[in-house]
Design a protein around this nucleic acid. Structure first.
Length: 543
RNA sequence: GAGCUCGUAGCUCAGCUGGUAGAGCAUCGCCCUUUUAAGGCGCUGGUCCUGGGUUCGAAUCCCAGCGAGCUCACCA
């Protein structure tokens, strides 16, 4: 618990102060406090009140808060109390509160919680302030607060000790870096969740919770975490997606269903990836992916309005309009965003078959050397080229080329539709192009936010796709699907034509709050546990 | 998993090309009854991330490790 002897000594000092506070007749850890207002309420009601009005009316208030600034001046003093991210100044004079209460005031430290009663007035500089008449001690801060002006800046400490981050950086002071307004971010995140529920509830969707511990981790291409149930003596997987369970529910007759909850994927960590992340998935019977495109645009617009009151978002210094959407097929996107200086781009015919796609790739990559300015751009195309030469699937290669060529450009809201069958084991084929499926993903800010498709509902075809996935698994792809017999059985009872979609809630929150890292929208992001050299005393107190 | 950058007091940071560690806030003591990054005086507080190496001498240079941030890879 202690970072140093400094903290150990401070803790002891504060224990001593607590005893002195008790000697003044106050409880060290009282159980409750009855306030008449919250601090935000006081500010909302009286921020506009003039000094004259406050003097005439004598507005008495009782509030509680954490001391974030304290200034003693002999026989009087000022302090600022903070509650719910809002601050209010108090003024304590010895002749107003009495000898004992003033002794108590002198024993207060930054970070302590107190309650005060008094009347409102304005100081010489015009600041709304409580002229305190009684002080109630509530809780002592036994540790020193981080630097009061700059706040808590160390990113690692902010993530590891989010509690300190929240109370230190919950209020925007002048001089505080603009990206640090943590409290606001998480208030907005709560609004995002509320808005999503409002949107789907109002359209007749039923919110459900499906298993997060699953005997077969399906519904996405990812490596799962493994856990174990002792009584049943079975291994279970933390889910990588709720998809297969939600579709079972549609089979069961819940035509419109959604779930907002965590998924777990045993993969790397980055500014866009946390091993556990929050996903919204929803399914609607009797719709296809075209309908979902409309619904997606409406949903994102609605959430932006609810959360920010506007569809304009600022992200990475760019203005994004969540009300304006573009739709491109994957093939169109590659053609549109092809970098001309990298050589002649593809045409519609280029995507027709493996040989035409490979010969185009060869023609573009062939002449490029390391000193060529398009070298890095081409380097990203080497993997798909190599796959194709080894007889790999055309679809996978096209999807890879899309990611390299187009994805970074998709800053403004863009729907990319029609994906290769080879990378979409759960989607329905396009009736006129069986090598392509009715699937789209949408991108904002340069990364993927959602993935949707017309759900494959033919049990025989689904069994085949699972078998293909198993074959891939045997070839070493440990992200390929496993066979889920019960899911195939569910489909055999009849899944109506259904559209389904997943939206990354953390990433959506990033866009709406301007956060550049997913860790800034997750309260406790996964970090490597810190190795501490603990003393024996601490060890035992921890256990 | 790879590359780049960073790690100095509880916090925010300074410490040039190696000469043995500083400031502000916080803490502690004193003064101060409208201050507001309050102010004034004084005192504390450091295995300079860890371990090696080079050197007469390392916070500083080199190597390894640990932790973090960013970029890339994998994915949503």
């Amino acid at each position: 618990m202690f970072e140093s002897d400094f903290e150990r000594n401070l803790f002891a000092l504060r224990q001593d102060k607590l005893r002195q506070i008790e000697a003044l007749g106050q409880s060290a850890y009282p159980n409750s406090f009855a306030a008449t207002h919250s601090i935000p309420e006081v500010r909302a009601v009286y921020d506009d009140a003039t000094a004259e009005r406050l003097e005439g009316d004598r507005s008495n208030v009782t509030v509680a808060g954490r001391i974030m600034a304290i200034r003693l001046q002999g026989k009087a003093g000022f302090a600022q109390l903070q509650q719910n991210g809002v601050r209010l100044q108090i003024y304590v004079r010895k002749d107003a509160v009495g000898e004992q209460a003033f002794e108590l005031y002198k024993l207060l430290d930054l970070g302590d919680h107190i309650g005060v009663s008094g009347y409102l007035f304005r100081t010489r500089t015009g600041e709304l302030t409580i002229h305190v008449e009684t002080i109630t001690f509530l809780t002592k801060a036994m540790l020193a607060l981080p630097e009061k002006y700059h706040g808590l800046g160390d990113v690692e400490l902010r993530y590891r000790q989010r509690y300190a981050d929240l109370f230190m950086n919950g209020v925007l002071n002048e001089g505080t870096p603009a990206e640090i307004h943590v409290r606001d971010v998480f208030i907005k995140r709560a609004k995002v969740l509320a808005a999503l529920r409002k949107f789907f509830d109002s359209r007749g969707f039923v919110e459900v919770e499906t298993p997060m511990m699953q005997p077969i981790a399906g519904g996405a291409a990812a490596r799962p975490f493994t856990t174990h149930h002792n009584a049943l003596d079975i291994d279970l997987f933390l889910r990588i997606a709720p998809e297969l369970y939600l579709k079972r529910l549609v089979v069961g007759g819940i035509d419109r269903v959604y779930e907002i909850n965590r998924n777990f994927r045993n993969e790397g960590i980055s500014t866009q990836h946390n091993p556990e992340f929050t996903m919204l998935e929803f399914y609607q019977a009797y719709t296809n992916y075209w309908d979902l495109m409309d619904l997606t645009e409406e949903c994102i617009k609605f959430v932006a309005q609810e959360v920010n009151g506007t569809t304009i978002a600022q992200f990475h210094g760019k203005e994004i309009d969540l009300g304006k959407w573009e739709r491109l097929s994957m093939r169109e996107a590659i053609i549109k965003w092809w970098w001309d200086e990298a050589g002649p781009g593809p045409t519609v015919q280029t995507f027709a078959n493996s040989s035409s796609f490979l010969s185009w790739l060869d023609s573009v990559i062939g002449p490029v050397r390391p000193e060529h300015k398009a070298f890095l751009f081409h380097a990203a195309l080497l993997a798909p080229q190599d796959q194709l030469r080894r007889g790999g699937s055309l679809g996978k290669a096209i999807a890879d080329v899309f990611e390299a060529v187009a994805e970074p450009h998709l800053i403004q809201p863009t729907i990319i539709y029609d994906f290769p069958l080879a990378v979409s084991p759960l989607s329905k084929q396009k009736p006129d192009e069986p090598e392509w499926v009715e699937r789209f993903e949408f991108y904002i800010g340069g990364f993927e936010l959602g993935n949707a498709f017309s759900e494959l509902n033919d049990p025989e075809e689904q069994r085949k796709r699972f078998e293909q996935q198993i074959a891939q698994r045997l070839r070493g792809d440990d992200e390929a699907h496993q066979m889920d017999e019960d899911y195939v059985r569910a489909l055999a009872y009849g899944l109506p034509p259904t559209g389904g979609e997943g939206i990354g809630v953390d990433r959506l929150t990033m866009i709406l709050t301007g956060a550049s890292s997913i860790r800034d929208v997750i309260l406790f992001p996964l970090l490597r546990p810190r190795k501490t050299t603990t003393t024996e005393g601490e060890q035992s107190s921890r256990e």
